[in-house]
C-alpha cells in the first residue's frame, strides 16, 4: 500500500522533472518555427509575442527563392551520405584496432589521436586549405568529404563500447578459427549497432550543418551546400530573421526524420540482445 503510493509519487516527480526540462529544451525549437512564420517587425518586438499575429507561410516560399536550395540539397545529401558511410567504416576499423588488437605503440598512437582534439579547429583551416589546393581538390566534393572521415571523437566512443565486449567471446571466436576481420563484422558490429547508429547520426548532423569549411573550399554554386545558403539572409547591416528561421527549419527536418528512423532501430528489439559482461 505505502509502497504503491511512494512509487506513484516517484513516477509523478519524474514526469514533472522531465517535463520541465523538456519545455526549456523544446522552446528554442518551437520558437524557431514560430519566428519563421512572423513578419520582420513582430520578431524584434519586445516583449515578444509567442504566436504570430499574422501567419506568414509565404516566408518559406521567399526563403526557398533566395538561393538554389534544390542543388544545395542534393550536394548536402551526397556529402552527408558518402561522408557518413566512410566515417562509420573507418571508425569501426580504428576502434577495433585500438580495442581488440595489440601492436607496438598502440597506446602512444591513441594518446596522440586524443591530443589532436585539444586544439581549436578553426586554427587548422588555412593550412588545410593549402593542402587541399595542392591536392587539386579546391571546389570538389573530395575536399568536402575526405578531411573529415577520421573523427577521433567517434573512434574513442566506439572503442569504449568495443572494450566492453567480453574477452571470452574473442577467444572463443579465435578457437573457432574465426579471423579478426570476420569477428569484427559478424560479432562486434551487430552487437554494437546502437552505438554505431548513434555515431552515424551524430556524424550526419555534423556533415549536414558544417559551414565554414564547405564555404572555404567551394566556389561554384554546383558544389555548395545548404548551410551556405543560410548566409543569404544575414548581412552586416541586419538579418532577415524570419527567412533565416524558415530556412533553418527546413534544414532541420531531414535530420529529425533520420533520428526518428534510427532511434526506432536503436531502441526497439535490441534491448534483449545485450551480451555485455
Amino acid at each position: 500500500m505505502g509502497d504503491g503510493i511512494r512509487r506513484k509519487i516517484t513516477v509523478v516527480l519524474t514526469h514533472v522533472f522531465l517535463m520541465a526540462g523538456a519545455m526549456i529544451t523544446l522552446l528554442p525549437f518551437v520558437w524557431m518555427i514560430l519566428t519563421s512564420l512572423k513578419d520582420a517587425g513582430e520578431i524584434v518586438q519586445m516583449p515578444p509575442t509567442f504566436f504570430p499575429s499574422v501567419w506568414h507561410f509565404d516566408n518559406y516560399l521567399k526563403a526557398f527563392a533566395a538561393a538554389p536550395f534544390g542543388q544545395y540539397f542534393i550536394n548536402t545529401l551526397f556529402v552527408t551520405i558518402v561522408g557518413t558511410i566512410l566515417t562509420v567504416f573507418i571508425t569501426i576499423l580504428t576502434a577495433f584496432g585500438f580495442s581488440r588488437l595489440r601492436f607496438p605503440g598502440r597506446d602512444v598512437i591513441f594518446s596522440i589521436l586524443l591530443a589532436t582534439l585539444m586544439i581549436p579547429g578553426e586554427m587548422l583551416i588555412i593550412t588545410n586549405f593549402v593542402t587541399v589546393s595542392k591536392l587539386g581538390w579546391v571546389d570538389t566534393r573530395e575536399a568536402l568529404i575526405f578531411p573529415w572521415i577520421a573523427n577521433v571523437f567517434y573512434i574513442y566512443l566506439l572503442r569504449q563500447f568495443f572494450m566492453q565486449m567480453p574477452d571470452a567471446l574473442y577467444y572463443a571466436a579465435k578457437v573457432d578459427a574465426c579471423s579478426d576481420w570476420r569477428y569484427l563484422w559478424k560479432i562486434m558490429v551487430p552487437n554494437n549497432r546502437h552505438a554505431i547508429s548513434t555515431i552515424a547520426i551524430l556524424n550526419a548532423i555534423g556533415c549536414w550543418n558544417a559551414f565554414l569549411w564547405p564555404l572555404i573550399v567551394t566556389n561554384s554554386e554546383s558544389k555548395r551546400v545548404l548551410s551556405i545558403g543560410l548566409v543569404r539572409f544575414q548581412t552586416e547591416a541586419g538579418t532577415h530573421f524570419e527567412l533565416l528561421m524558415a530556412a533553418s527549419a527546413i534544414l532541420v527536418v531531414p535530420m529529425i526524420i533520420l533520428y526518428l528512423l534510427l532511434r526506432n532501430q536503436i531502441i526497439s528489439g535490441v534491448t534483449r540482445s545485450g551480451i555485455k559482461g
Binding site: I90, T91, L93, T94, F96, G97, F98, L101, R102, F103, P104, R106, I109, I112, L113, T116, I119, M123, L124, T127, N128, T131, F146, P147, W148, I149, A150, V152, I155, D180
Partner: peptide
Amino acid sequence: SWKGYFYILPALIVVSVFTIYPL
C-alpha cells in the same frame, strides 16, 4: 602484431594530413 596497423592505417593517414600536420 603488424595486423593492427592495417586497421588503424586509414584513420592515421587522414588524421596525419589534416590534423597533425597543421597542428
